[in-house]
Design a protein around this nucleic acid. Structure first.
Lengths: 200, 200
DNA sequence: GGTGAAAGTCAACATTTTTTTCCAAAAAAA
DNA sequence: TTTTTTTGGAAAAAAATGTTGACTTTCACC
């Protein structure tokens, strides 16, 4: 972390902003948060962060800040719990297997763990058999997110989450598979997929 | 490579400081902690620690101390060269950007680097826009492998590699795009994709 | 295609922090 | 004693941080 105190404050703000809003802050919003009177202060900080490799942006493009992986230089060893396949409970691989994952691919809010995908239930979202998914532990999801859900305390499945008139539709990304529609009390969300890794 | 007592104290302080704050201390802060009246004392110690390989810093850069011991095991920092899109040369991002990748997702045989995918030319192989691909530097490939190829010393593209009766077919995994068939001498293989990572 | 608001770019300037370099000297170790 | 390590004091040099204000680019809308 070769940053000054101020630079880190600004990088942290940007990181949180993107994490919370899904888009990067404008320079004015950054200036507002730090009570800068001048946008040029922000501009120079962004230049500094950019030249040090912590972020990148497009010239003249609004809200085009992209964090680079080096921004969060750390790595976490996440537990690899096992396989997740449509309709079957998680099948544990082994007790103490872990996998080092760069923090760039993690959620900062909650614990994460890794599952290996079995089957093609999410193939249209380009998650294929054998892929590893990093799952953020969470019991709530935004509609459309890919979730790990426990149904009837029995089956664990990887699906997209859509709440619909009092029910929950768990939608595979695979035209050959039917969605599951169930009462909310039958579903327990285990987590949300935050990243995918594949090894050839 | 042994340290004196004092040097170890100072290295420990720096380690803790970085651990707690996320950025390195200034020489004045180090002097303050050890109640030095002179910054030169700190300066000399940093020189000593640096020449013995315990830390690295940039000349004339504020708070640029980096501990060199803590290279996290099992993870490599690969250079992120830039974007690769069908038909366009690699668009460099910045020279110093890196990305930590777990060794599990690397090839052990050759050097690797990371490219960010632009466009959907490999979508049917489930590599989508915005994905990061880890590329193993290689000049030969097995038919069917996904390669980074340089055509006519001009364009770099991500395609599947098929040698066919004296020519080379570079096949996109996208039905809407046509394959490129060229003489072998016009193609230089840059590398082979060994893993894919995606962040939502 | 024109227009205007929003957002980004950048030079000139001032201030504060931080690093680097002098010349020395005490303290500890060999 | 001789050498190495450690600390002082001061000042030059460079980087970091901000302000003001003018200019350009992008984009949505007429």
């Amino acid at each position: 972390m070769k940053l000054t105190q101020r630079q880190k404050e600004i990088l942290d703000f940007i990181t949180e902003f993107i994490d919370g809003n899904g888009y990067s802050p404008s320079m004015e919003e950054i200036a507002g948060h730090f009570k800068f009177a001048s946008l040029n202060a922000v501009y120079k900080h962004l230049e500094a962060l950019s030249s040090r490799g912590y972020l990148r942006r497009d010239a003249n493009r609004a809200r085009s800040i992209e964090l680079s992986a080096g921004a969060t230089a750390g790595v976490q060893n996440l537990p690899l719990f096992g396989y997740v396949a449509a309709g079957h409970p998680i099948e544990a691989i082994s007790n103490s297997e872990t996998m080092p994952i760069p923090e760039f691919f993690l959620s900062r809010r909650n614990d994460c763990y890794v599952l290996k995908v079995k089957g093609d239930s999410m193939i249209e979202d380009h998650i294929q058999d054998g892929d590893y998914v990093v799952v953020e532990s969470r019991t709530a999801a935004v509609p459309g997110e890919t979730v790990v859900a426990l149904i009837d305390n029995e089956n664990v499945t990887l699906k997209k989450y859509y709440p619909e008139n009092g029910r929950i539709r768990l939608q595979p990304a695979n035209a050959t598979l039917a969605p599951i529609v169930v009462e909310p009390q039958r579903v327990k969300l285990q987590g949300v997929v935050v990243s995918v890794m594949r090894k050839y």
